[in-house]
């Protein structure tokens, strides 16, 4: 009797211990993703759309600050605002007329810019069908363990988003592109953010799993801009992104703020439009998902088992470079034309 009790006791200790251990491991890997990517797109050209560039750079600044390296951020900007001749303070883009934050920063890397920002390039980037010879910085090299943040801003309408004032992507095309990504195992979870007018219409057609979508306005509503900088002469940021940045500025890599909190950053009294959220495709409870699952970055850690230490003597001979000796010469920088006469 005593023995059996003891055994049971030991068993419970063991099982509770292992359960705790498993829980710890589960906590550690609960999101299940192994790497983070961000696709940040501004689709608007022309100086009066300054605010859209400020929007996208606000998110760029945040994801970079929270640890996603530049090699894993695809930044698409349709026009040059920072070095635009109309910008009174060159090489800066501010989120605020009081110039609190220069969202352009000192080490920005824009991957697609100007005329390269097209619907075709965007869909090709997402689905990975790029022409041969495309440099790495212009590819979305994600896998089935990637959490991707997709942020779009520009001018939209019911069921479309305009690119550069000349073409548009429809919500169906967007949904199909994401489905293709899912089928090709190009993402683990995807957080879709969009700041345009009637933004919610863009995520209505989504049908692929593991997507959490948030939009700055519902169908039939306009997304409004925040304020004008009289020195620049145009609106400098949109309301939704302004408050999103305000929230993200208070997040750091180790903070426990959740996506659920992030989804409520802009109540109607601040945004004037209603922020739309679509969570039926997303399996987890947003209030249990840290913001850093999408805005931060997982450091690539690989747990190895059965490590054997092997020592091996390696001897190297110094490489002898077989330089080809040949008579090299400088050629005259310009041909001598004095031999030619009129």
């Amino acid at each position: 009797m005593m023995l059996s009790l003891c055994i049971i006791f030991v068993c419970t200790i063991l099982s509770s211990g292992s359960a705790e251990y498993i829980k710890k491991v589960e906590d550690f890997v609960k999101s299940g993703h192994t790497n983070n990517w961000a696709v940040l797109v501004d689709t608007s050209r022309f100086w009066f759309n300054y605010r859209h560039v400020a929007n996208v750079l606000s998110i760029y600044r945040s994801v970079k600050r929270l640890g996603i390296p530049d090699s894993q951020i695809i930044l698409m900007i349709a026009d040059d605002m920072a070095c635009n001749p109309r910008n009174p303070s060159p090489a800066t883009v501010y989120n605020n007329a009081n110039q609190f934050i220069n969202v352009y920063g000192d080490d920005v890397e824009v991957d697609y810019r100007g005329y390269e920002v097209t619907v075709e390039n965007f869909v090709r980037l997402l689905t990975g069908r790029l022409p041969p010879g495309t440099p790495r910085s212009k590819q979305l090299l994600t896998d089935e363990g990637s959490n991707i943040l997709v942020y779009l801003t520009g001018h939209g309408g019911d069921g479309f988003l305009k690119f550069q004032d000349s073409e548009e992507i429809t919500s169906q095309e967007m949904a199909d592109a994401l489905e293709q990504m899912w089928q090709k195992q190009r993402y683990h979870e995807l957080f879709f953010m969009i700041d345009t007018c009637q933004a919610a219409s863009m995520y209505e057609r989504f049908y692929s799993p593991n997507i959490l979508a948030v939009a700055s306005s519902l169908v039939g509503e306009d997304s409004l801009s925040h304020h004008v900088d009289p020195a620049i002469g145009v609106y400098i940021i949109d309301r939704y992104t302004y408050y999103a940045l305000e929230f993200l500025e208070r997040v750091n890599a180790s903070s426990d703020k959740t996506i659920g909190e992030f989804l409520t950053v802009c109540p109607k009294r601040l945004c004037i439009s209603t922020v739309g959220v679509r969570r039926d495709l997303f399996k987890r409870d947003p209030y249990k998902v840290p913001v850093t699952d999408f805005f931060g970055s997982v450091r690539p850690v690989e747990l190895l088992q059965d490590i054997e230490n092997e020592t091996q003597e390696i001897t190297y001979e110094k490489q002898v470079t077989l330089s080809t000796k040949s008579k090299y010469r400088f050629v005259p920088q310009l041909e001598n034309f004095s031999v030619l006469s009129k």
Binding site: E109, V110, R113, P132, G133, K138
Partner: peptide
Amino acid sequence: WKELASSLSGLICASLNF
């Protein structure tokens, strides 16, 4: 030549791929 320009566009963040 075309691939060189494309590679450089990635290296230097310019639209050299045009």
